[in-house]
Amino acid sequence: MPVIEAISLALLAAGLAFFIAGTAALVRFPDLYCRLHAVTKADNVGLGLTLFALALRADSALDVVKLGLIWVTVLIASASVCYLIANEAHRRGVRPWTRTRT
């Protein structure tokens, strides 16, 4: 069905855009905490959109379930690891970037 294919294509394009944005943010953001946002949020949205695009083309219901499980797992992992890294960094005294510090 071309409609589903078109939707899938659009989702894939959006997913790629988020991935590129997340990677660019990782490079350009000024400190660890901001970069954590980039990696764990933007990339996850990109992944989710990509998974959705693939799910529309999946061969079986089991595949769709697995794709959903991948996304849930990555979400849980990213959110927790993001917090753990930020907490540990804060504990070690990494100071957030402020505009006056340039």
Binding site: L32, T40, I85
Partner: peptide, 26 residues
Amino acid sequence: PARGDSLLVALLAATTGVAIILLLGE
């Protein structure tokens, strides 16, 4: 040189790697 950033690279590689594997598979 910062250490925490290096791990972010690994996380980025993991998330992007998942997507690349799925796209390649398709």
